[in-house]
Design a protein around this nucleic acid. Structure first.
Length: 287
DNA sequence: AAACTCAACAACCGCCATAAC
DNA sequence: AGTTATGGCGGTTGTTGAGTT
């Protein structure tokens, strides 16, 4: 039995939002906070699907959004995160305060893809696109993802000061399955690789030497208000002031102890729906 | 000036995970 | 324990405006 529609489509507006609709939504959320998106439209006097309201708020109306151009640093950060996470736009957005997953996704598709292609890098695999790349791989070329994606970084020694304190880097060699799950490139057709085994070649020696400060920001305690609980994305962004350094494994949804031995403060999951947890993989199992 | 092309981005759609019943 | 409702995510499409012919 299929899902019922989230709203009565016959009585909802679609398409671009008007200024009046925006004002109604803003006013309502200012007065009542982010709450039940399903009932919000009616309560706010909007002829919109709740889902549409949520999207409009999250991607456009939220006051903490940073509008404007991405910097080169942002570009590089997005590329690095994409190399690590694939098309997990919400996770990537979590590392760029004020940016939304939709914005980053659009930016990726319109700017960064071309930027990488102009560098000769396949934007999905972060490996060289040249015809010889597969041959190079077959011949034992050990180009890491980072050097593939950032040729300019290749000659430089591994950075020390911002060396990942997250254990992905450290744990990967001792747990190849996680290394694959966290760092496996998305399939070539642009879809997420979560659909099981793929015939796309994996990069077994993927050594993401990410020069990132991957300090994650998470609520120090589970959301208590319905509004906070209703939106993990919002809470993620709203709690950037409460910086708490935890490991990337945690942020990726790996429970402490499954594959990560990091002892960093990984509090009880920040709310029941904060993450979609990965199941620890069996040896040799691929995502 | 009109027609066309393309980049940018807002919004929609379908699916998934999970809370709620 | 099973079913349904809801929020959230990623992929895709539609619209718009700028640039080009």
């Amino acid at each position: 039995m299929g899902r019922s529609p989230c709203c009565e489509k016959a009585h909802t507006n679609k398409g671009a939002w008007t200024k009046e609709e925006d004002q109604r939504l803003i006013a309502y959320i200012k007065a009542h906070g982010e709450g039940c998106w399903r009932s919000l439209p009616k309560a706010a006097g909007l002829l919109r699907c709740g889902k549409s309201c949520r999207l409009r708020w999250m991607n456009y109306l939220r006051p903490d959004l940073k509008r404007g151009n991405f910097t080169d640093d942002d570009d590089e950060l997005i590329i690095k995160l994409h190399a690590l996470l694939g098309n997990k736009w919400s996770l990537i957005a979590g590392q760029l305060p004020g940016r939304t997953d939709n914005e980053i996704k659009n930016y990726w598709n319109t700017h960064i893809k071309r930027k990488l292609l102009s560098r000769g890098i396949d934007p999905q695999t972060h490996r060289p696109v040249s015809a010889g790349s597969s041959a190079a791989a077959a011949s034992g070329l050990t180009t890491t993802a980072s050097t593939a994606a950032f040729p300019s970084l290749a000659p430089a020694p591994p950075p020390q000061q911002h060396r990942l304190h997250n254990p992905v880097h450290a744990a990967a060699p001792s747990n190849a399955s996680f290394a694959r799950s966290a760092a496996s490139p998305p399939s070539e057709d642009g879809h997420s690789s979560s659909g099981g085994s793929s015939d796309a070649p994996r990069c077994p020696d993927l050594n993401l030497d990410l020069d990132l400060d991957l300090s994650m920001s998470l609520p120090s305690s589970p959301p208590k208000t319905p509004a906070a609980a209703s939106s993990t994305t919002a809470s993620r962004h709203h709690h950037h002031q409460q910086q708490k350094t935890i490991c990337l494994c945690y942020h990726l949804g790996v429970r402490n102890g499954d594959v990560c031995s990091c002892k960093a403060a990984a509090p009880s999951p920040a709310g029941p729906r904060a993450f979609r947890f990965l199941r620890p993989l069996e040896e040799g199992q691929y995502i």
